[in-house]
Design a protein around this nucleic acid. Sequence first.
DNA 1: CCTGAAATCCACTATTG
DNA 2: CAATAGTGGATTTCAGG
Lengths: 166, 166
Amino acid sequence: MDGYPSLDRIDLKILAVLQEDGRITNQALAEKVALSPSACLARVRRLEAEGLILGYHARLDIERIRPTVTVYGEVTLKSHRPADLLTFEAALAEIPEVVEAAQVSGPFDYLIKVVSPDVRFWGELADHLLQEGLGVDKIASHILMKDAKPFRGAPVTARRHPGFDG
Amino acid sequence: MDGYPSLDRIDLKILAVLQEDGRITNQALAEKVALSPSACLARVRRLEAEGLILGYHARLDIERIRPTVTVYGEVTLKSHRPADLLTFEAALAEIPEVVEAAQVSGPFDYLIKVVSPDVRFWGELADHLLQEGLGVDKIASHILMKDAKPFRGAPVTARRHPGFDG
DNA sequence: CCTGAAATCCACTATTG
DNA sequence: CAATAGTGGATTTCAGG
């Protein structure tokens, strides 16, 4: 459990810019953060090596690529022993349609996001999760009706108080 | 409401590769899909223009950049008139800590994901959402304990049946 | 729609401050 | 740690099929 790496204003700016435009050229990035290209590239490589940048990805409009039903599942397990949690997580890792999974506090244990071709597929997937000795007690599901705010990144710098003024 | 664009095997491969590695060079991409660099680039530009590729982003480990508490909020509105939904969604769009929001079916109306510096911030944000004439009835929240499977993209091609064999 | 060539631009590595 | 300059390689455009 080590602390936070020491990041100066330039590092944070680089992270913010790359999160917004992952394909910006190093030259343009260097200009935005007021650094020479070589110094900028060295910082980017350092941020990658430190694991603060985990990867670069194209964001796709999957619903326009093929028919899709996205479902959020609230999964409750029968047991909360660490080994059982890991077994369940390992199973999720093997299912490509489970695109995201979070262990959460509250009345259920995991919130999972599933991108399936139709509702039947989700039904079969839920059945599998309930049957295959994964210790799943129950699953409540919510179908995504509208992607009101697609994920585009988290704020790199924290505000102290929320506000609707920005 | 138009149908799906006609995408051949190469287009789907390009989308899959770029989703996995958004910073791959056009040359390497062209090689992977067995096309010349110029033909490959033309396809990528077409996919971008058609809106199937919405953007490119670095994926950051925000929890290692700064202290973070991620919360899922289940938001119930008082009214479900389209105008009220849009008002609420517009408010969410203005709050950078709300990193994702989905309108869903079921006993609540929106599932929102919030990245806040601490729990107090989330409390204040929830209070604001409940007070400011946005028509919010109630919010149930779940704190993220462990990011069991971070989002890295959705499968570009659909399977017919789920299975744990891959 | 593709290929292939030509020109521009960029990434990356010394080298130096 | 950062700036500068140079080279190899990539991006991008365009002519041609």
